[in-house]
Design a protein around this nucleic acid. Structure first.
Length: 267
DNA sequence: CCCCATGTTCGACA
DNA sequence: GTGTCGAACATGGG
């Protein structure tokens, strides 16, 4: 689930409990996603503190407890955040539960590709302060995008769009959606776009990001049938514009869906 | 049993 | 050093 819009949705789930005071923390020992942080460290940092801030950026989540404890969550491939009852007995995949009087905040992740960390300090951790420009609003400029594409000139665009250092929050389906909308073949080398195609790509990034946030984070529903999203995993799925059969192929190390004809490789 | 999965990282190799 | 690619991570579903 977790690309930028699902991550924002997850943020809102915990943010609903803003102000709750932590009474207890439960941690599953020895799980990969909690790595270096022990139960005692979580307890010491969180108990008695209130959930004071909830932030999301790209695929990163950051929750502040009290003044100086920062709990960060990356959902990996299968992580989810939920609220549950304060009597909750953690299930097999509930790796971290932060209990308040009236609610429990749960991090669950059956594949354990996610990651939870704890940082302390009056300011957000360094990695957060140095995060790349966001993709909604005016954060990413065409110039910055173009420079990045040139630097990764020979790599397929599909792979480049997945690079979080420049396109934070874009994942497999959003990258496909963006290229489909911009009518660019996913294997097109990043450095080979015409000025016009660069503008198309830039516009498509903005549209897909804003649309995904609107539908998924805002409304809590999937994007409409007019998006590639609704068709990409169906066998025999067809391009919602041309009606032609979609193709699935491995490009840039990931399964990629595109509409041949609409998205052609060019010189 | 085999293959696949909305992600990241690490080691091998050019 | 730079850049790319596949495997590995842990689990479940088809």
């Amino acid at each position: 689930m977790p690309e930028l819009a699902e991550v924002e949705r997850a943020r809102r789930v915990w943010a609903q409990a803003a102000g709750m005071v932590v009474v207890r923390v439960a941690v599953r020992g020895g799980v990969r996603c909690l790595r270096e942080v022990s139960a005692e460290v979580f307890e010491k940092a969180l108990v008695g503190r209130e959930l004071s801030e909830s932030l999301a950026h790209g695929k990163q989540l950051l929750f502040r407890f009290g003044e100086a404890a920062w709990l960060s969550v990356h959902l990996g491939m299968a992580g989810r955040l939920r609220r549950d009852v304060p009597e909750l007995v953690p299930g097999r995949h509930d790796h971290l539960v932060v209990y308040g009087e009236r609610v429990a905040l749960v991090y669950q992740d059956y594949r354990q590709f996610g990651r939870v960390r704890l940082d302390e300090g009056a300011e957000p951790p360094r990695w957060w302060r140095e995060r790349p420009a966001a993709l909604d609003g005016e954060g990413l400029t065409v110039g910055a995008m173009r420079a990045f594409l040139k630097r990764r000139g020979r790599a397929p665009l599909k792979a480049v769009l997945l690079m979080q250092e420049r396109f934070p929050g874009i994942g497999n389906w959003m990258a496909d959606e963006i290229l489909w909308r911009a009518r660019i073949h996913p294997a097109q080398p990043a450095g080979s776009l015409s000025a016009r195609k660069e503008r198309d790509l830039y516009a498509a990034i903005g549209e897909v990001v804003r649309g995904a946030l609107h539908f998924i984070a805002g409304q809590g529903e999937d994007p409409p049938e007019s998006w590639l999203f609704a068709h990409r995993w169906r066998d025999g799925g067809r391009c919602p514009v041309s009606g032609k059969e979609l193709v699935r192929e491995r490009i840039g190390g990931r399964t990629t869906c595109y509409a041949p004809g609409r998205q052609r490789l060019r010189e």
